[in-house]
Design a protein around this nucleic acid. Structure first.
Lengths: 177, 177, 177, 177
DNA sequence: TGTTAACCGAGACGGTACGTCAGGTCTTGGA
DNA sequence: TCCAAGACCTGACGTACCGTCTCGGTTAACA
């Protein structure tokens, strides 16, 4: 529901009411309850329908994997610099914290498109010798998403240099050279 | 306020009402409003007063840094395996997503005790040759906390082997050996 | 609203709360506020709907006017001897003291049925030579109602002999014989 | 308490709170509760202390009793024409309707000063042949006060001609000449 | 084309919690 | 020692939304 997404972006999840959604959509409250059982369920469907924008696709395959990831992360962080997007994602976070079902939907929706794609990219890169072997795409995604989420909630800087730092640390590792 | 912390742990942040806090604390509602302006402000004070338990201290200095971090992470993840603690942290997350002021308090309270301690440990470790140089403690903390948070919200596994995987990846990095 | 009338009779106007009315009527508070703007407005509607009982009709026409009035007054005072009725009327008084609109409704509702009836009776009686001419029915009603009200508020005796005393004084006047 | 009288005059009885009285008088709330048990009790004392204006004393003895009463009633009604006084008396009425104790105090304070005085005047007048004998001062006072109260609550006219009508009816009686 | 059924906006309903106000009691710190 | 100042518990206020439940008016399918 477009009205829902817009209202969450405008006001934040907590401040959006079902009545306000109904009013904004020029729809009766009952019509909403006919299809969804809760506010978070509406959001879950917004996500499934792709109404909530997620970070863009990975850059094309022929790139260096490190550059690929850096650009992707830069794009994702950049999207979060937009106040409405940030507000929306914080709303989703709030909703997911309260509702395990929504959390599951959100998790799958967020990771699915990336997991297979990134897994393939990492594998190819490993074959090209750009990476060491034995790396789990899920772990990488988890770490990157977790970091974005943490910065988002902490209202930390989302500037472009941040992406480079993170990828640098991720690639080089902490161990001695 | 102890009543607040307990209720958030029991019911989740959203389901806690100011009235229920007042009733649990055998206190008038007005007394709460006299001292705090919102539910999240109470939570912020709970955090500042140390009523909300955070993961335990780092292990003793003489350990290998990698083992130190692994154990610390294992402990932190283990704490999140307790449903009440997990519920409390999810509540804090939800509150922080809605209230920038609380987010700031929470962020500072969470990172302060670790930042200096971990920074020192990392520095010593680097001197002992266990780490490469130029590593930002803040970045490490951010990545670890972000990962914990992400797993918590996604209801992912918090088992002990997870800590090892993460530290392994973090130390080795993604780059080719 | 029957619940309102009963509660006012039981507890007195000041001690009746909108919440208690809502609870007694098994109704949400908002439903009451949707239809009435204040407690006194509810009472005004009770009066207009005839839910509040007023003293009975005048006795039949063929009576002597003095006996008629005496009996009517005795009946009215007798009704006030019932604690619930007395409490209800005191409640109306309290409400009327606070709310001019209610006072108007109450005044009209109280006097209307009597004014025309008593006026006609007085006129007939004057024609029969039982009364001197030039008497205003409104003034008589005002004096009788005022006296009842005063006795009611002062918790003075409402016994049957009182009616006779009052009518005696009213008919004979204070002047020398 | 002067502060009370002023506040009642300014705001009306209903809108005056004990807290506002305390604040205006630069006095602690407890000090007020030490001496009075309720807002209406304070007002009762205000009346007793003559801070609240009540109808003036009867005119001097050498007047004709009928003129005396007419002037007294005119004065009383005139005082009620002042919105502040009327509001105050309505407040007392409301309080008396709810609180039998206050009603008693108020009744005694209101009638006492008049009863003995009017009783004596009526007796003298009867001796001078201005009145018929056997008249109860209490009944006269009750009727006059009742009428004033009724007009006050009904928001009826308090103009000077009203006094004359009432006294005329009271003296002449309803019976045939 | 006219009748009927499903749908849906609008919004009233019984509720819960909100944040505020005032009541009456209890504690305290300065005169 | 007294008392203003004001925190405290209580309970009612009037409002915002909740999720449920009728209402009419419109639309679409069938007669």
């Amino acid at each position: 529901m477009i009205a829902t997404r817009d209202l969450v972006a405008e006001l934040g999840y907590e401040r959006v009411t079902i009545e306000s959604i109904a009013a904004r959509a020029h729809v009766g409250k009952q019509t909403i309850y006919r299809w969804w059982s809760s506010k978070s369920a509406i959001l879950a469907d917004c996500i499934l329908d792709g109404l909530v924008l997620l970070p863009q696709e990975l850059p094309p395959e022929n790139d260096d994997i490190r550059i690929s990831l850096t650009e992707w992360l830069r794009g994702a962080l950049g999207a979060m610099a937009d106040p409405d997007s940030a507000s929306l994602i914080r709303g989703l976070t709030s909703a997911a914290a309260d509702d395990p079902d929504l959390a599951l939907v959100l998790y799958e929706r967020l990771t699915e498109p990336y997991e297979s794609s990134i897994a393939a990219r990492l594998e190819e890169a490993a074959e090209r010798g750009e990476l060491r072997s034995g790396i789990s795409a899920a772990d990488v995604i988890e770490m990157l998403f977790g970091t974005i989420l943490y910065r988002l909630l902490s209202r930390l800087d989302m500037g472009p240099h941040v992406a480079e730092n993170i990828i640098e640390m991720l690639f080089s590792g902490l161990g001695p050279t």
